[in-house]
Amino acid sequence: TDCSIVSFLARLGCSSCLDYFTTQGLTTIYQIEHYSMDDLASLKIPEQFRHAIWKGILDHRQLHEF
Rank of each mutant, 00 (worst) to 15 (best):
T1Y: 08
T1C: 09
T1V: 09
T1I: 14
T1H: 03
T1F: 11
T1A: 08
D2I: 02
D2C: 04
D2W: 03
D2F: 04
D2E: 07
D2P: 05
C3M: 14
C3V: 05
S4Y: 04
S4K: 08
S4R: 06
S4H: 06
I5M: 12
I5D: 00
I5A: 00
I5N: 00
I5P: 00
I5W: 00
I5R: 00
I5Y: 00
I5K: 00
V6L: 14
V6R: 13
V6N: 11
V6D: 13
V6S: 15
S7E: 12
S7A: 15
F8S: 01
F8A: 02
F8V: 04
F8K: 00
F8G: 00
L9H: 00
L9V: 02
L9D: 02
A10Y: 04
A10C: 04
A10L: 09
A10Q: 05
A10G: 06
A10K: 07
A10E: 14
R11C: 05
R11W: 04
R11T: 12
R11Q: 07
R11H: 05
R11G: 08
L12K: 05
G13V: 01
G13P: 00
G13H: 04
G13N: 13
G13Q: 10
C14T: 05
C14V: 12
C14S: 05
C14E: 03
S15F: 05
S15W: 04
S15Y: 06
S16R: 07
S16T: 08
S16Y: 05
S16K: 05
S16N: 10
S16M: 08
C17Y: 03
C17R: 01
L18P: 02
D19A: 10
D19I: 08
D19K: 12
D19Q: 07
Y20I: 14
Y20P: 03
Y20M: 12
Y20K: 12
Y20T: 08
Y20Q: 07
Y20N: 12
F21R: 00
F21S: 01
F21K: 00
T22P: 01
T22K: 13
T23I: 08
T23L: 11
Q24H: 13
Q24N: 07
Q24W: 05
Q24C: 10
G25Y: 03
G25F: 02
G25H: 06
G25M: 03
G25R: 06
L26D: 02
L26F: 06
L26G: 00
L26N: 03
L26I: 13
T27A: 06
T27E: 10
T27I: 08
T27G: 05
T27D: 09
T27K: 11
T28N: 07
T28V: 06
T28A: 08
I29R: 03
I29D: 03
I29W: 09
I29Y: 10
I29S: 04
I29E: 03
I29A: 04
I29Q: 03
I29F: 15
Y30E: 13
Y30S: 15
Y30F: 06
Y30Q: 15
Y30V: 11
Q31K: 03
Q31G: 03
Q31N: 05
Q31E: 11
Q31T: 03
I32N: 01
I32S: 00
I32Q: 00
I32D: 01
I32V: 11
E33K: 06
E33Y: 06
E33G: 08
E33P: 01
E33F: 09
E33H: 10
E33W: 10
E33D: 12
H34Q: 10
H34D: 14
H34G: 13
Y35S: 03
Y35C: 06
Y35T: 03
Y35V: 06
Y35A: 05
Y35Q: 03
S36A: 09
S36E: 13
S36Y: 03
S36I: 04
S36D: 11
S36M: 06
M37A: 09
M37C: 07
M37R: 11
M37H: 11
D38Y: 09
D38K: 11
D38C: 07
D38L: 10
D39I: 02
D39C: 05
D39K: 07
D39T: 05
L40Y: 03
L40T: 00
L40S: 01
A41E: 13
A41C: 15
A41N: 12
A41G: 10
A41W: 06
S42H: 13
S42Q: 14
S42D: 15
L43A: 04
L43N: 02
L43K: 03
K44P: 04
K44M: 10
K44C: 09
K44A: 11
K44H: 08
I45T: 02
I45P: 01
I45H: 00
I45V: 12
I45N: 00
I45R: 00
I45L: 11
I45M: 05
P46S: 03
P46G: 03
P46N: 03
E47S: 12
E47P: 14
E47M: 10
E47A: 13
E47V: 13
E47R: 09
E47D: 15
Q48W: 04
Q48I: 09
Q48R: 13
Q48M: 12
Q48D: 10
F49E: 14
F49V: 06
F49K: 12
R50T: 09
R50V: 12
R50G: 03
H51G: 12
H51F: 09
H51A: 12
H51V: 11
A52M: 06
A52Y: 06
A52I: 09
A52S: 13
A52L: 12
A52W: 08
A52F: 10
I53S: 00
I53V: 07
I53F: 00
I53D: 01
I53Q: 00
I53M: 03
W54Q: 05
W54G: 04
W54A: 08
K55D: 08
K55L: 09
K55W: 04
K55C: 10
K55F: 04
K55M: 10
K55E: 13
K55V: 08
K55S: 09
G56D: 02
G56P: 00
G56V: 02
G56Y: 02
G56I: 01
I57L: 12
I57S: 02
I57W: 01
L58F: 11
L58P: 03
L58E: 13
L58H: 11
L58Y: 15
L58I: 14
L58T: 14
L58C: 15
D59W: 04
D59K: 09
D59H: 12
D59V: 11
D59Y: 09
D59P: 04
D59M: 08
D59A: 14
D59N: 07
H60P: 03
H60Y: 13
H60I: 10
H60G: 07
H60E: 07
H60W: 13
R61G: 08
R61D: 05
Q62G: 12
Q62Y: 07
Q62I: 05
Q62P: 05
L63S: 15
L63E: 15
L63P: 14
L63T: 14
L63V: 10
H64K: 13
H64Q: 15
H64T: 15
H64W: 08
H64D: 12
H64L: 10
H64A: 14
E65A: 14
E65S: 09
E65D: 15
F66K: 04
F66C: 15
F66E: 02
F66L: 12
